[in-house]
């Protein structure tokens, strides 16, 4: 016998279930008066630096139906490419931008919406620049472990072409599943497909 390594195991995941909105967005789910506002409902204020953008999308199941009980969270850098996090050591992120958003999705259409800003570029650990991107995390009834993915922008073709993650995707036609489409000025659509021929690339990070 050798010595043992005393690492603890990560607690196992369990589905967020159909009532995740009670705990994460109680005001949205009709439980008012407990929290002043739902966490993650406001990412920007009047003083936030950068280009304002809107991101809309839906999460589709394997039958092609939109989920009406999903919860979507995003995490991104500010306009200068800095994260509003203690882990950020390259400079001081914009104090008027949280970088984190949470959207419950509309109860009828399933559409999620984020009012945010276009993120700046962030370096890869080896120093190369990544294309501007937003990290996504999706939970819902029937999703046993939260799903990580990323949004990239269709108007950043040059940056996308040299992005270290996009570059390593073997099935090139699947790269499109990570690219948000411009709908009008400053508005993007990013639909997420859990299954099927258009299945979004999900990340094991």
């Amino acid at each position: 016998m050798a010595q043992t390594l005393d690492y603890l195991n990560e607690s196992p995941s369990q589905t967020a279930g159909p009532y995740v909105h009670i705990g994460c967005t109680p005001n949205f789910s009709g439980i008012g008066g407990v929290y002043a506002e739902d966490p993650g409902s406001r990412m920007v204020n009047d003083k936030t630096l950068g280009e304002r953008i809107t991101i809309r999308g839906r999460v589709f199941d394997g039958v092609g139906a939109p989920l009406k009980d999903a919860l979507v969270e995003i995490w991104q850098a500010d306009a200068a490419g800095l994260y509003n996090s203690p882990r950020e050591s390259r400079g001081q992120a914009d104090p008027n931008f949280s970088g984190w958003g949470r959207s419950p999705g509309d109860m009828e259409s399933g559409e999620f919406v984020f009012e945010t800003i276009k993120p700046g570029a962030v370096p890869w650990p080896d120093g190369r620049m990544q294309a501007p991107h937003i990290s996504f995390w999706i939970v819902a009834r029937g999703i046993n472990l939260g799903l990580h993915t990323r949004l990239y922008f269709d108007d950043e073709k040059e940056a996308n072409a040299s992005d270290p993650i996009l570059a390593r995707i073997e099935h090139r036609q699947r790269v499109e599943t990570l690219i948000a489409k411009s709908e009008s000025s400053a508005s993007y659509r990013f639909d997420i497909h859990l299954q099927g021929s258009a299945e979004t690339i999900f990340f094991d990070i």
């Binding site: 199941d61 394997g62 039958v63 989920l67 995490w75 850098a77 994260y83 996090s85 203690p86 882990r87 950020e88 962030v122 370096p123 890869w124 650990p125 990544q130 991107h133 990290s135 819902a140 009834r141 029937g142 999703i143 046993n144 799903l147 990580h148 990323r150 993650i165 390593r168 995707i169 859990l194 299954q195 299945e199 979004t200 690339i201 999900f202 990340f203 094991d204 990070i205």
Partner: peptide, 19 residues
Amino acid sequence: TRSPQKALLSFPSSLSEES
């Protein structure tokens, strides 16, 4: 019907995930 069927894409985490 809510489970991805393709393999997950693995890559070493960067500041985007470590923050």
